[in-house]
């Protein structure tokens, strides 16, 4: 049953998927990496020094774009109700959704970080830290995304609000993930991974409760 839920979620969320627009965050991410050198000018050492941070900020902004497609359509269509009638807990449905969301943006984002790094002239060592940091941080970003999408799903201006909510909540991941660039002793990465783990563990319960609460309205 988990497999069927995951297949449906992936078919909806993946690039070229039924709910569309999954390639947009990726293009947005690359566009930011491309615009940044134009904005600060052709100063190679400066770009190499700040480029890692720019990739992080671009990744974070790209994670905001698909939020309105994550939970709200299923809530409106009564999919969660039909699942609940069949005894499928909201927590399980949300956990599967979180995994599908991560699969739909994180692997492609890691791939897109390579051309982005080339555009910014990053050193090999920096690129390695960025990639490891994104690998550690993106599960947390996916969890925050699903959590916020569930909390704002029943609100009228949910889409706009969710972007605003995601930014402060993702600051810890950004601090430790991007902080690893300045102090490459691995401590930052470990912290980013720990925050991610915590978020991934908490989100199914918090978002599941949010979906149930949305029914009472």
């Amino acid at each position: 049953m988990i497999g069927r839920l995951l297949l449906r979620d992936l078919a909806l969320l993946m690039p070229g998927g039924r709910r569309g627009g999954a390639l947009l965050p990726l293009l947005f991410f690359l566009a930011v990496a491309m615009l940044y050198p134009f904005a600060v000018g052709p100063d190679a050492p400066l770009l190499a020094r700040t480029g890692g941070g720019v990739i992080w900020v671009a990744a974070l902004l790209a994670a905001i774009l698909p939020l309105d497609r994550l939970v709200a359509p299923d809530l409106d269509e009564g999919v969660f109700d039909q699942l609940a009638v069949r005894g499928v807990a909201e927590e399980l449905a949300i956990a599967v959704r979180m995994l599908a969301h991560w699969l739909s943006f994180a692997p492609l984002l890691l791939l897109a970080a390579l051309p982005a790094a080339a555009l910014l002239g990053l050193e090999r060592e920096t690129l390695r830290t960025v990639l490891l940091g994104l690998l550690a941080g993106t599960p947390g970003l996916a969890a925050i995304g699903v959590l916020i999408a569930a909390l704002t799903a029943s609100l009228r201006s949910g889409a706009a609000l969710s972007g605003l909510l995601l930014i402060p909540l993702s600051v810890p991941i950004l601090i430790f993930g991007a902080g690893a660039l300045a102090r490459p002793d691995g401590g930052g990465l470990a912290f980013a991974a720990a925050i991610s783990l915590l978020l991934v563990a908490v989100t199914p319960f918090a978002a599941g409760a949010a979906v149930r609460a949305a029914r009472e309205e």
């Binding site: 449906r8 078919a11 909806l12 039924r18 709910r19 569309g20 409106d76 269509e77 009564g78 999919v79 109700d81 039909q82």
Partner: peptide, 8 residues
């Protein structure tokens, strides 16, 4: 609410 994905 019919719970059938509109695009599918």
């Amino acid at each position: 609410r019919h719970a059938l994905d509109p695009q599918v």
